[in-house]
């Protein structure tokens, strides 16, 4: 019995059989596919699913990976980002997993991708019709930090009792002068369910509203899948006298000069030196390829291109 199972492992590693396309077995895919369809039919509602152990740890994208593995096919082109970047280690690892297990084409270009798996960001370039964006979700329950019990939060969603959330946001305003939630900022989907957009910065919330792309959310450890179909109203919670607002950066990206994008702060030295660069690495590279320059672009620093500087500051 035991030697046979060892042989099974060897056989699996030697040749990936049809049934292991995209790792999951077909029964698991069916179960996840059913959850995805119900998620689409009930936008913003968290569909429970029997999440499987994956060959990466819980909390590292197992929900997103299971969703992607259940929808992806040989005709797809996959992009994986973490913190907006294609080259962060976990994005590299997940991309390599699908390149190996599903033999799919991968890309770093947002526009080329048919499926985009993401952690913590929505690309700057607007998504288009036919694309699917899959979010890795750590805590799918927007009410979790107000009420830790699933039994209670389920009741609140059932009767649409979201008073607790409004009280929390209002207390923020009363005590701090503004809503102190900067990421995983709660939204209301189709005027019914309050939903956690995953820990994307609230900067990205407006991109969810009536997006052309299908948005799928997978939480592996918490065993929930939810969805927002294209062209669906997604409203960030706020108050009439305290309207929702996104983060604004005072300076443009130091590499591409981009404005109205989410920037990462990079510490340059221990003297307080810092710069701000695009969190979306593909967007930044694309702009630079099209001649845009920021104040700290290598060729600007070298004094090579005065034009670039001008363009950068305009952009």
């Amino acid at each position: 019995m035991t030697s046979a199972t060892l042989h099974d492992i060897e056989a699996q590693q030697g040749a990936i059989a049809d049934y292991n396309f995209a790792y999951l077995d077909e029964q698991t895919k069916r179960m996840i596919r059913r959850a995805i369809l119900k998620g689409i039919a009930i936008p913003g509602y968290q569909v429970p699913f029997a999440s499987r152990e994956m060959p990466m740890p819980y909390g590292w994208g197992t929900g997103g990976v299971q969703v992607t593995a259940s929808i992806i096919g040989p005709d797809d082109t996959l992009k994986v980002i973490d913190q907006g970047a294609d080259d962060t280690t976990n994005a590299v690892s997940i991309r390599a997993f699908f390149a190996r297990m599903a033999k799919v084409r991968t890309t770093t270009h947002t526009a080329e991708a048919t499926v985009i798996q993401t952690r913590h960001r929505i690309p700057e370039e607007p998504l288009h019709e036919g694309q699917v964006i899959v979010f890795q979700v750590p805590i799918p329950e927007p009410l979790r930090f107000l009420e830790p019990r699933e039994t209670e939060t389920r009741k609140m969603h059932a009767v649409e009792d979201y008073g607790l959330m409004h009280v929390k946001l209002y207390e923020d305003i009363a005590q701090k002068g503004h809503i102190a939630t900067n990421y995983a900022y709660p939204v209301k989907v189709k005027g019914r369910y309050i939903m956690d957009p995953s820990p994307t910065p609230k900067f990205d919330n407006p991109k969810m509203h009536r997006s052309e792309a299908l948005q799928l959310y997978g939480a592996g450890r918490e065993m929930r899948i939810y969805a927002i179909p294209p062209y669906t109203d997604v409203v960030s919670l706020d108050f009439e006298d305290y309207p929702f607002e996104i983060q604004h950066f005072e300076e443009p990206c130091a590499l591409c000069g981009g404005t109205d994008v989410f920037l990462d702060e990079v510490i340059l030295d221990d003297q307080g030196g810092r710069m701000f660069v695009c969190s979306d690495s593909d967007y930044c590279e694309d702009r630079r390829a099209h001649g845009h320059r920021g104040s700290l672009s290598p060729d600007i620093l070298d004094g090579a291109s005065a034009d670039g500087d001008k363009e950068g500051t305009e952009a």
Partner: peptide
Amino acid sequence: GFVEHLKLPHYVDFQ
């Protein structure tokens, strides 16, 4: 998994 995921980058949220 969830405890150890804290070592993954969170710089967008931290920003």
